[in-house]
Amino acid sequence: MSSTERRARHAGATVALVAWAALSVFPLYWMLLTAFSPQADTVAFPPHFFPRRLTLDNFAWLFSHAAIGRWFVNSLAVAASVTAGSLLINAMAGYAFAKMRFPHRELVFWMLLSLLMVPEIVMLIPLYVVVNDLWLSDTFFVLIVPFLASVWGIFLIKQFLQTLPDALLEAARIDGASEWLIFRKIVLPLAKPVLGALGTFTFVGQWNSLLWWLLFTSSAEMRNVQVGLASLRFQYATLYGPLMAGALLAAIPMIVVFFAFQRSLVRGLTIGALKG
């Protein structure tokens, strides 16, 4: 291959990479632009690709027409409690599967793993029936407790902890440390990378949760940001300015989490895939 040919290929590859990045990020830019544009500009022909007049009207409209503050509090409260609680519970189980010996360990683990193939909707219907019978609909209980353990989380932590040397734990055991002490003082600190990764995924998944909240909440005050945004989309189908303002507000926490925990996200992906 001649050097001009190589340079041409390199340039072609760059064009393709940039073009695809532009295409995939463009909707985000369009949302951002529309959120700060007056309603007239959002439907203007020909469309404006760059801001002309900027306004906060869409946000003002949103806050006066929707309980968006309350939806944020709900989303944040549930996502934070689920993340904190499930990290502890999954770490305990993951530790037991990775480093403790007990009868039927492999069998129990594989039975749990096979649950990953069961579609969520299969379990949602009977839960809905039971939850309604117990008057638990529209409560935080049903939004938080079912997610305090996850097969995927246990799997991820087990995969990570298995790579720790046994000698470390055995030394502590010989010194008479209880398993709980070993777990708290040795295992949890060492598991920080996987806990960071799993915590990030859990928080993102909870924040973006739709179906569960759609089924288990009925009052407008118990909606999360996603169900709230969906309700706005059906109620005000063509008010694109306020809709994009709402979408932007819903997206901001995820964009912040993404840039703050990018390395954790990448680590989580590779722990799950490569060692699985």
């Binding site: 695809w20 990045a21 995939s24 990020v25 909707p27 985000l28 369009w30 949302m31 529309t34 959002t42 439907v43 993102v204 924040w207 973006n208 739709l210 996603q226 945004l229 969906a230 989309r233 189908a237 063509t238 694109y240 809709l243 994009m244 709402g246 979408a247 819903a250 997206a251 995820m254 964009i255 989490v257 993404f258 840039f259 990018q262 996200l265 990448v266």
Partner: peptide, 27 residues
Amino acid sequence: KALYYLPAQIGAVVSAVIWVYIFAPVD
């Protein structure tokens, strides 16, 4: 990697709401 990851990170609802606007028949 970040640019390709972002559209999934923002969630199905946000992304769908934006696409509804882009696909709108008249506007």
